[in-house]
């Protein structure tokens, strides 16, 4: 119990961010027109690719003899990059298509 409370006070900034971002996330896309649903989903998909930062940190901190961390980290960076790069490019292509239609 005490450890949990300590963890909460040690991470209070993070917890504030979580709470504020939940409300902000709901607020900023509240009035999206339905034609933009799929591109918005795709754009959001690219944004959560920020997880790649974690993969880079894992990879960069792994010691040279820890093969498990090296191999899994390497894989994680590849997959994360796929998510980020692919996500943004696909979103851009989708939105490009929207322009042509008009």
């Amino acid at each position: 119990m005490e450890a949990t409370l300590q963890w909460i006070s040690a991470n209070q900034q993070m917890i504030y961010i979580v709470i504020l971002m939940i409300f902000l996330g709901i607020e900023i896309i509240g009035r999206v027109p339905s034609v933009l649903h799929t591109p918005l989903m795709s754009g959001a998909n690219a944004i959560h690719g920020v997880v790649i930062i974690g993969a880079i940190i894992v990879m960069g901190r792994a010691s040279e003899h820890n093969y498990l961390a090296l191999i899994l980290g390497f894989l994680a960076v590849i997959l994360g990059t796929l998510n980020v790069v692919g996500g943004f490019v696909v979103t851009d292509r989708m939105l490009e298509m929207f322009k042509k239609k008009k």
């Binding site: 991470n11 900034q13 993070m14 961010i17 979580v18 971002m21 939940i22 409300f23 902000l24 996330g25 709901i26 900023i28 896309i29 509240g30 999206v32 339905s34 649903h37 918005l40 989903m41 959001a44 998909n45 944004i47 959560h48 920020v50 997880v51 930062i53 974690g54 940190i57």
Partner: peptide, 26 residues
């Protein structure tokens, strides 16, 4: 949370919340 990284946290929760609302809107 693991790396005390606020950019990951912001991006992740933002998408988590917006994605949930978007799911409901869809």
């Amino acid at each position: 949370f693991l790396y005390n990284n606020k950019a990951m946290l912001t991006g992740g929760i933002l998408v988590g919340a917006a994605g949930t609302l978007l799911t409901i809107l869809m």
